[in-house]
Design a protein around this nucleic acid. Structure first.
Length: 277
DNA sequence: ACGAGGTCCTGCGAGC
DNA sequence: TGCTCGCAGGACCTCG
């Protein structure tokens, strides 16, 4: 579930707790999350290395180290990244994928129940090609309605699928795609290249608005997501359509429909409010 | 270029 | 109570 707002919240929590810290005795418990790096090389590179910067790219947490390497963690659906200032309890030790003592008493932990998360270790060149394959950040100041429209012009894909395509736009997953389309009044199944300028402008505005509001609420906790300090988010109480199939539309009262016809994922919408112009 | 569908992974809730 | 089954989801893959 960690989409852009959840990962942004995690990064804001981790940044002051990790920046400048040195990893002591990193340990990997679930090597199957690694991509294009061996456990031995990951641990050898990270041991005694200093974290210089903690940032977010799309749905990924990016730790940049003094050696120039970046550890990229994509928390997948059930991943949690946390810094503990005390020893972990037994339940907290369950599902730990990666863990490292920091200089001082703190411990940095990546937990992931379902292990749909992934970890990469990239050098400078690897990072450049990695980030180049991901679409623009929707909250970047320069990402205006014109830039947004340009990303959706060329495809007949359903607009919801296009919104969630990370090569087209970074960070939007199922929850916020559903919410933004509802708020913009757009049918999720509509081919992206058939959206008019007004619909595109509305969608650009609502994508940014819903992501911004969700960050302010520290993300959406449905089950597993926690912030970087272990708290639940608050945006689950502000969702209009996601997870509300069969309930009345908050705008017009029509019963919200859920289908799995778009890319096999749960899509909830109001057929009355979301009929494109 | 595009869509459909399989794979990974585990917990949970529905149904029998 | 105890079992099986389907679902949750994003990224990546193959096939047609």
């Amino acid at each position: 579930m960690p989409e852009l707002p959840e990962v942004e919240t995690i990064v804001r929590d981790l940044e002051p707790r990790l920046t400048g810290r040195i990893l002591r005795a990193p340990r990997l418990f679930k090597p199957d999350v690694l991509r294009r790096v061996s456990p031995r090389r990951l641990l050898a590179t990270l041991a005694r290395n200093r974290i210089e910067q903690v940032t977010r790219r799309a749905k990924h947490v990016v730790l940049r180290f003094k050696s120039g390497h970046r550890m990229v963690v994509q928390p997948g659906m059930t991943g949690n990244l946390l810094v503990y200032d005390r020893p972990l309890t037994a339940p907290e030790r369950r599902y730990v994928v990666f863990l490292s003592k920091l200089d001082g008493k703190a411990t940095f932990v990546y937990r992931d129940v379902r292990r749909l998360g992934r970890v990469w270790l990239l050098d400078e060149a690897g990072w450049r090609s990695y980030t180049a394959r991901i679409g623009p950040e929707p909250l970047a100041p320069e990402f205006d309605a014109v830039a947004f429209a340009a990303r959706f012009r060329g495809t007949r894909q359903a607009v919801k699928k296009a919104l969630m395509d990370q090569q087209r736009l970074a960070g939007v997953g199922n929850i916020y795609a559903n919410e933004a389309l509802f708020r913009a009044g757009i049918d999720p199944s509509r081919p992206a290249n058939r959206l008019g300028p007004v619909a595109l402008a509305n969608l650009h505005r609502e994508v940014r608005a819903v992501l911004g509001e969700a960050i302010a609420a520290q993300g959406t906790t449905l089950r597993d997501y926690r912030t970087g300090t272990g708290r639940r988010g608050g945006f689950q109480f502000a969702l209009h359509v996601y997870g509300r199939g069969g309930q009345p539309c908050p705008r017009c009262g029509t019963i919200l429909q859920t289908t799995h016809l778009i890319d096999g994922r749960a899509t909830t919408f109001c057929w009355r409010c979301q009929r494109g112009p």
